[in-house]
Design a binder for these strands. Structure first.
Lengths: 75, 75
DNA sequence: GAGAATTTGTACGTATGTATG
DNA sequence: ACATACATACGTACAAATTCT
């Protein structure tokens, strides 16, 4: 389910929901590295700012952790 | 022909008519970016709300499309 | 170790979207 | 219709840290 520009829900929230589902579904297991911001940006057709806002939500939920210049890992 | 406060026609309709003519006249070609709402606002001496209302009319006519954070483009 | 490439961090500037008075 | 404020989103540029060659 891609992000939907027509949906009034903010894009970063939509993207966070998508990634959250993929994580819970097990697309990436614990300790595994998520795709880079650059990749997610192209994959979902949004700006990097939006990707980062989405990842921040997941971080705040404690679902992932981000390490500078390394990437974002599943908790 | 600038918008006329004395004219009982709503300002946003007057502005829409002006922009419509400019588009049909070829001031901006297909795919081109229209001036920003901020620019149009100052250019025509109206509020941003009025500019947005005018652009909405043109969108509903299928004459232009607006992309968030990018601008309004001629169809 | 050196240098290039990759990835996240930060900072702007600009534009549209929404809400309020 | 207007003015204001803030949220959301895009794009760019550069810095900092890490990884790859």
């Amino acid at each position: 389910m891609p992000v939907n520009q027509m949906d009034p829900t903010p894009l970063y929230e939509q993207l966070a929901a998508i990634l959250r589902d993929q994580i819970r579904r097990g697309d990436w297991s614990s300790g595994e590295l998520l795709p880079s911001e650059s990749y997610l940006q192209q994959e979902h057709g949004v700006s990097r700012s939006t990707v980062r806002a989405a990842l921040k939500l997941l971080r705040d939920e404690g679902l992932v952790i981000t390490i500078t210049a390394r990437g974002t890992f599943v908790k």
